[in-house]
Structure formats: structure tokens, C-alpha cells
């Protein structure tokens, strides 16, 4: 289990990184490497060049500005998780990060790396989807922002074009009056989710749901919005009956995957619905407390 040989380039700036990416047929960005290195060890990935961006100063920054948390591609999960400002501004993110693997993985793993890797079972792409975040991408043609819903295009595939790289993620901060929750089912702590959900509920003055966002992960080829659940909740008083109905509709239209090793599609659907119910309850409670 040794990776195939590769060239290693340490890029201190984004232009340096782009130049290196453009200079080889099969170059890949190395940030934390916590997903990439294991598949390289199995030789499921054999890049010719690894472009290490983890030390580029401009990618090492994160900041909250105008209701948006911007996280550079070199920022590790653990740095975010332990940062007092992030903990205060985006507790949902911190809770989501805590579900990823183990602290020793999060110490190297990056938020942007998780987005770019696009593992269907990963938490962060679903968080970005649920909260309408954006991925900032740099390429030879300059920079562009890709909405979360358009970024992940399939299992382990994204809207990144050849020669492009993720430079930052923009995460809108949950607003007042909304309540959010994240939850997942895993056999052991840190294992990939058999089903996971990030959800948010906004309540109006009358206690009705003014908007609901439900994103599922670990159940389909990509993170998916649970539109069925959202439609049930929109405009409804989120009482037990409404939450039951929303949970029951969460998998409508979702093409659920399954496997023999971890869980069947049927299990993901059944347990996932119960998970959605539990998370919605928590989100509604949080929304009520925040209002």
C-alpha cells in the first residue's frame, strides 16, 4: 500500500498552484490529504503531480464578513472547530465538523478539500447545500463562484474544470429566527454516515415555518435536498404531525443507494426518515429558542 511515485510541488500562491496544475496531465491539489492519501495508498488514485497548497498564506485565512464565513482552502477542520470566533458565529458548522472522522483526521483535513473530494457520505457538502453556500474556484480564466447545488455533480465528481482548484468556501451564517440541526447515523464514532441530515427551519411571528432546508448525505450519489420534506413544512405549523409528515416525505424522489457491507437502501431510507424527524425536532426547538 505505497502510493505510486509522483512529483511534489509546494505552491505558496494561487498562481503558482494553477501553473503547476496546468503543467501536467494528471495533477491534483493536496491540502489536508486525508481523503486523497488513502486512495493513493490503494493506488485508486495515481496522480503525476501533487500540488501542495496547504501553506499558501492567502489560503490559510478564514473570516466572517457580512453574514458569510469565508474559509480558505488551506484551513483545517480542526482550526475552525477550535476557533472561538467560528464557534460563536457558526455553531452548526462546528457541530458538523465534530461528526467528521476523528480529531486527528480533522487536524489535517480541510473544509474545501472535503467539498472538492465530493464523497457522497461527507457532511460538509451537505452543509453547504443546506445553507446555500458557494465554492470559490480559481483557474486560468480567473475566479468564479459555484453555488453548492451546482458544485457536486456526482459521486466524487464536481464542477471543477481541468486546471481549476477550490480556493475558498463561502458559508452563509444561519440568521436569527432560524434553527438548525445536523445529525447522522454511523456504526462507530467517526465512520462514514449510513444516513445524515443537515436541516434548518425559519419560523415567522405566528410560529409558522417560513422556510425549511433539509439536505441529506450518505444516502444518494450526491448530497441531496429533501424537497419532499421542505414542501410539507413550508407554511405549516411545525407540530408533531407536520414533522412526522415531513420526515415521511424526506426521501420522496431521492434515489437511495445501498450496499451489502454497511447498509441497504431500505435501511438508509427507514432510519434516515427517523433521523430527519429527530433533526427537524431539534431545528424547530432551536428556532423557537432563537426567535
Amino acid at each position: 500500500m505505497k502510493p505510486a511515485p509522483f512529483e511534489y510541488v509546494r505552491a505558496d500562491t494561487v498562481p503558482e498552484a494553477l501553473a503547476a496544475l496546468g503543467g501536467a496531465d494528471d495533477a491534483r491539489v493536496l491540502a489536508g490529504g486525508q481523503s486523497l492519501v488513502p486512495i493513493m495508498a490503494l493506488r485508486l488514485a495515481t496522480p503525476e503531480v501533487l500540488v501542495d497548497v496547504s501553506r499558501a498564506p492567502e489560503l490559510r485565512e478564514h473570516r466572517s464578513d457580512g453574514g458569510v464565513l469565508t474559509v480558505g482552502a488551506g484551513v483545517t477542520d480542526r482550526e475552525l472547530e477550535l476557533d472561538a470566533g467560528v464557534r460563536a458565529a457558526h455553531p452548526l458548522l462546528v457541530r458538523t465538523l465534530s461528526l467528521i472522522a476523528h480529531p486527528e483526521i480533522r487536524a489535517r483535513g480541510t473544509l474545501c478539500g472535503s467539498l472538492a473530494h465530493a464523497d457522497p457520505a461527507a457532511e460538509l457538502p451537505a452543509l453547504l447545500l443546506a445553507t446555500d453556500g458557494e465554492v470559490e474556484v480559481a483557474g486560468d480564466a480567473g475566479r468564479r463562484r459555484v453555488p453548492a447545488a451546482e458544485f457536486v455533480t456526482g459521486p466524487f465528481t464536481t464542477a471543477l474544470a481541468d486546471g481549476e482548484m477550490v480556493v475558498a468556501a463561502h458559508l452563509p451564517l444561519p440568521g436569527p429566527g432560524s434553527g438548525w440541526a445536523v445529525d447522522e447515523i454511523a456504526r462507530r464514532p467517526g465512520d462514514y454516515a449510513l444516513a445524515g441530515v443537515v436541516c434548518g427551519v425559519e419560523l415567522d411571528g405566528a410560529g409558522r415555518c417560513a422556510g425549511a432546508r433539509v439536505a441529506l448525505f450518505g444516502v444518494a450519489a450526491t448530497p441531496v435536498r429533501a424537497h419532499g420534506a421542505e414542501r410539507v413544512l413550508d407554511g405549516a405549523v411545525p407540530d408533531d404531525a407536520a414533522l412526522d409528515a415531513a420526515a415521511a416525505a424526506a426521501f420522496d424522489g431521492v434515489d437511495v443507494i445501498g450496499d451489502e457491507v454497511h447498509a441497504s437502501a431500505g435501511y438508509r431510507r427507514r432510519a434516515g426518515a427517523a433521523l430527519v424527524r429527530r433533526a427537524l425536532t431539534a431545528a424547530v426547538r432551536a428556532a423557537g429558542e432563537g426567535a
Binding site: P38, R187, R188, P189, G190, Y192, D259, E260, V261
Partner: peptide
Amino acid sequence: LLEQVVHDPNGQPQTSTMLDYLVPTAYD
């Protein structure tokens, strides 16, 4: 509760990493 070597119908092991063959952790 956790451990099992699984093969697909062609006899390919599906549990060739420690992410797939689950041994108990301190939590379990």
C-alpha cells in the same frame, strides 16, 4: 455487532480496509 468479512457474488472481498471491517472502538 460489528465484524464481518463480506464477499460479492464473484468472491471479491468487500471489506478489505478497516473502514469496512469494523472492529470495536473505545466508544463501543
